[in-house]
Design a binder for these strands. Structure first.
Length: 461
RNA sequence: GUCCCGUUCGUCUAGUCAGGCCUAGGACACCGGGUUUUCAUCCCGGCAACAGGGGUUCGAAUCCCCUACGGGACGCCA
């Protein structure tokens, strides 16, 4: 166990933003990499939007991504409480230190932090008024991602609001000190706050922690950082859309961090082993939903069959495709022949629904194509006796049988494939045809061929 | 407006810290071909980038400066 202590300090807002998730992830990775401690601290000072439900969303999201915390809500720890709303006494105590040191003053009911240095007044173009500024000595931040950053704070700032509540900058620093945080890994949007925080650390007699400001995640298109309204911005959406958490986590690792050797899909243990500050990029990263989907698809295809079955069953049950009476082996067979064509679990009912139900969608485009040329009805009529007679009913034997049938009719075997596929599944694509027919079994195939003939014999003649 | 950070294919990135190995590599996307004239898989191929300008140097994607562009911060929000 190393003495590294990192924290993720979200404010529960009712959703779990992908940027926050990535910050949590990087902190978690660093803690696991170093054998340190990952603290979850809840910044629930904004009473309006902090609800039990909001906290749930956050913790569920973290657990879903596999980000377990060593100290914090539900698990406790020696540095609690882990909710800011329960730490008022601690904040008062630290405020007293600043008061005793003469670093505070009161104005309009609020308590301000007093910077040290020469004072002057200047027109502020942003605030559109005269403000008092201070020439302070710049704070030097030895950032692990950006290198040396120098920034001078120039205005006194509020520590306690006139309503008696402490502000973010103050509680954040106090919590980091009192919880013994050694490394602060957070978004680059906090970089310019850091001079403020360093002032506070030093005024409180504490050495600032090591900082690492990680790049922001930008919208996939258009300007600015990812906002909660953007497509793919919320972890809840990935949960809902049945993404594999490990895949989402893997993709997030790759946004702003690189293993340096061209590998992308990596088991989490290996990422933990290789994760470090020098692999973190300094430029912001644009979110790419296509790549996210691609990585998700790779994960799905890599799943062992039993795991896949275990994950997929509830989805199929929910869709009414499978129930207790469904044959386990049949389900396994279906998944075995379909897995290589899977790209997203929420698209699964559409991909393999026809294996379980006769009530599947008919793809109009494919139907149009099938009937445009040749004689699909005749092809199916020719196939029926073959299906009835075919003995071993394996993909290979079916292939051979169809091949010789085609030969005897003066066709290429491909003349039969698209028609058979459509007759049996209503689709133009799907698992490889022969394994698919073999899996469906003689009975289902014949049933659907007959059905196909009945429907189209009347409508087309 | 001020301050801070950044800038390699459309996107994520390798290479930059320790200048020559870079006619700049990989992946996603896209395009073409093949894989059972299905397909969402797989294989092969292709397209495509060092933001611009000055230096330093025998030599710069790599070091320095300027400009441009992008991002962030500037709350009694967090």
């Amino acid at each position: 166990m190393s003495d590294v202590r990192v924290r993720f300090a979200p404010s529960p807002t009712g959703f779990f933003h992908i940027g926050s998730a990535r910050t949590a992830l990087f902190n978690w990775l660093y803690a696991r990499h170093t054998g340190g401690t990952f603290v979850l601290r809840i910044e629930d000072t904004d009473k309006e939007r902090n609800t039990e439900e909001a906290l749930r969303v956050l913790m569920d999201g973290m657990k879903w991504l596999g980000l377990d915390w060593d100290e914090g809500p539900e698990v406790g720890g020696d540095h609690g409480p882990y909710f800011q709303s329960q730490r008022s006494d601690i904040y008062r105590e630290y405020l007293q230190k600043l008061i005793d040191a003469g670093r505070t003053y009161e104005k309009e009911g609020a308590i301000f932090f007093r910077l040290e240095g020469e004072r002057y007044t200047e027109y502020d173009d942003y605030k559109k008024c005269e403000v008092e500024k201070v020439r302070t000595t710049p704070q030097i931040i030895d950032d692990q991602v950006r290198g040396r950053v120098e920034r001078a704070e120039e205005k006194d700032f509020v520590l306690y609001r006139s309503n008696g509540e402490p502000v973010f900058h103050f509680v954040n620093v106090v919590d980091d000190i009192s919880m013994g945080i050694t490394h602060v890994i957070r978004g680059e949007d906090h970089l310019s706050n850091t001079s403020k925080h360093c002032e506070l650390f030093r005024a409180l007699g504490a050495e600032p922690p090591v900082f690492a400001h990680i790049p922001l995640i930008l919208k996939s298109t258009g300007p600015g950082k990812m906002s909660k309204r953007d497509e793919g911005a919320l972890i809840e959406d990935y949960q809902k859309n049945r993404f594999l958490p490990a895949a989402v986590r893997n993709y997030l690792c790759l946004l702003g961090w690189s293993p340096k050797d061209d590998s992308e899909v990596l088991p989490i243990d290996e990422i933990i082993e290789r994760f470090d500050f020098d692999g973190i990029n300094s430029g912001n990263a644009r979110f790419d939903e296509k790549k996210m989907a691609h990585i998700n698809a790779e994960y799905i295809r890599q799943l062992p069959l039993e795991t896949l079955a275990w994950m997929v069953s509830p989805i199929l049950v929910e869709e009414g495709l499978v129930d207790d009476s469904t044959d386990e082996d049949y389900l396994q067979d279906v998944l075995r022949v379909s897995q290589e064509k899977m790209t997203a679990l929420n698209a699964l009912p559409a991909l393999i629904g026809f294996f379980f139900s006769n009530d599947y969608a008919i793809d109009e485009k494919t139907q149009g194509r099938i009937f445009k040329k040749g004689d699909p009805l005749a092809r199916i009529r020719e196939l029926i006796p073959l299906i009835e007679a075919e003995e071993s009913f394996t993909a290979d034997s079916l292939d051979a049988s169809i091949e010789s049938l085609a030969e005897s009719q003066g066709f290429k075997k491909f003349e039969y494939f698209p028609v058979a596929r459509f007759a049996v599944s209503g689709a133009g694509g799907g698992p490889d045809l022969l394994p698919m027919i073999s899996t469906l079994g003689r009975h289902r195939v014949l049933e659907r061929f007959q059905n196909f003939l009945e429907i189209h014999a009347t409508s087309t003649s």
